[in-house]
Design a protein around this nucleic acid. Sequence first.
DNA 1: CGCATTTCCTGGAGGC
DNA 2: TGCCTCCAGGAAATGC
Length: 285
Amino acid sequence: MPELPEVETLIRALRHDLRGARFGRVRVARRDVIHGDPRPPERLLPRRLVRSVGRIGKRIEIELSGGLRFFTHLGMTGSLGVWPRDEPAARHTHLIIDLQGQSAQLRFGDARRFGGIWLFDGGELSVGKPLPAVGCDILSANLACFGRILGAKRAIKALLLDQHALAGLGNIYCDEALFEACIHPLRKASTLSADEIGRLWRAVGRILRAAIRAKGSTIRDYRGPGGAPGRFQRAHRVYARDGLPCTRCGAELIRLIVAGRGTTACPACQPMGSTGPSRRRRKTR
DNA sequence: CGCATTTCCTGGAGGC
DNA sequence: TGCCTCCAGGAAATGC
């Protein structure tokens, strides 16, 4: 399930593979995964130059010449990448864009189709699903911004998963960050102490940056550029480890449902009550 | 407002 | 081996 580190891994490869590229022939296998501009992609995309590749949270944006913006959201099982033209396309490949003058093509695929492509050129008319909204990218949020958003009276995990508030965290990195910061996923965000907010902010940044270095987590479907799996799943300390001992204290990790998502936490390390700052204060810096 | 529930969808796992 | 059911979840919509 691609979250911020997996999306960042993919766009770093796309920036390289699409540098200076111009779109050529377009084939659409499933039209219902493409939204926004009502004109057919076969007419809209050819001859466009790739200007930039970026992301906010889990949303990928490719700026094309002529003011066309190409957004991708990968949902649960989506993938976007450049492949050699002679490499057989994976099952559930829905859109293929040849790159002019290259023996390579950009492919979008998505087995479960929770993801999609959105094309916009500034025109008002939009068909299909609305582009999922995103707030501030969670890696770009400073501590002050993070703290302001955490003033809401909601379960902290529900808030961290809400892409309108802070964009980029999904179920895996949410559980990992809350564990690292020793905060129970059901704590009301507004009851967190300044110390806890600081701990959580640092934990989120540390985990996301480490996961990007490891090229993301491959649990089942996610594959990085060229089909290579990520490595960060080896570093998971709570996600899907319910019933196993906590790596920090040995207590049995428990499973609960928060915001409709399966959640794993350590009942000893992540108490529902506020954890005092003194016990976990850093010695240096 | 916030929360749980339902919807979309497929492949993998487990039961029999 | 094969069929069935359940489950995973990103995000929006709906009901309370």
